[in-house]
């Protein structure tokens, strides 16, 4: 999962995921803004990804039950997925999660929902084509595409920057050549 110092990986790990505890946990109430208290079984709390994944694989007691169960995060809820299926271009991914794809990929490692993976791949491809069109626009992020570009997640922003830089380098070379001759 990337380098230790990778900011994007750290931000991805900090995304909250809803977890439901299956056991009573004494003295862990501070996770639920109830310092000093206990966590009751069947409490649902949003925890960062790094913590919740560790808790979910932890098996304790004679029953070998997991400490908590994970739910799909709100950023890939069925409502969002339906919107993505309808038209990937109009969804503001950034407002759902800054590192939408990476967070979703981390969760999907635990869930194995192949249909969600397919929807996300399709979304990424459709949006990538749109990103390419905007990146070749010499006016950059201004103009009519501003709303779409504001809704890009971090991975798509890097893609946009890469595509924009290479088309800029190309234009620069063409311009320099004209000056030289």
């Amino acid at each position: 999962m990337g380098s230790y110092y990778n900011i994007d990986a750290i931000l991805t790990d900090a995304q909250k995921v809803p977890c439901t505890f299956t056991l009573d946990l004494p003295n862990l109430g501070y996770l639920d803004e109830n310092a000093g208290g206990d966590i009751k079984a069947q409490t649902s709390i949003s925890l960062p990804l790094w913590l919740s994944t560790l808790l979910a694989v932890q098996r304790i007691g004679p029953s070998q039950a997991p400490l908590c169960t994970l739910d799909l995060p709100p950023s890939i809820s069925p409502r969002v997925l339906n919107a993505l299926k309808a038209d990937p271009r109009t969804v503001d991914l950034r407002s759902l999660a800054g590192n939408f794809y990476e967070g979703a990929a981390r969760c999907l490692e635990l869930f194995e929902e192949e249909e969600v993976v397919d929807v996300l791949c399709e979304t990424f491809k459709k949006r990538a084509a749109e990103i390419a069109d905007h990146a070749h626009n010499p006016r950059g992020a201004l103009g009519e595409g501003a709303d779409f570009l504001r809704g890009l997640d971090e991975m798509e922003r890097q893609l946009f920057r890469a595509a924009h830089d290479s088309s800029k380098a190309m234009r620069l070379w063409m311009g320099e050549m004209k000056r030289k001759s």
């Binding site: 794809y101 993976v117 397919d118 791949c121 990424f124 491809k125 990538a128 290479s166």
Partner: peptide, 21 residues
Amino acid sequence: SEGRAFIGGVVDGLRKIGASK
């Protein structure tokens, strides 16, 4: 040289998203 960054980025992104599958 013009298309490398974009196509490479898309392939890399799809690989990340599809990693679990």
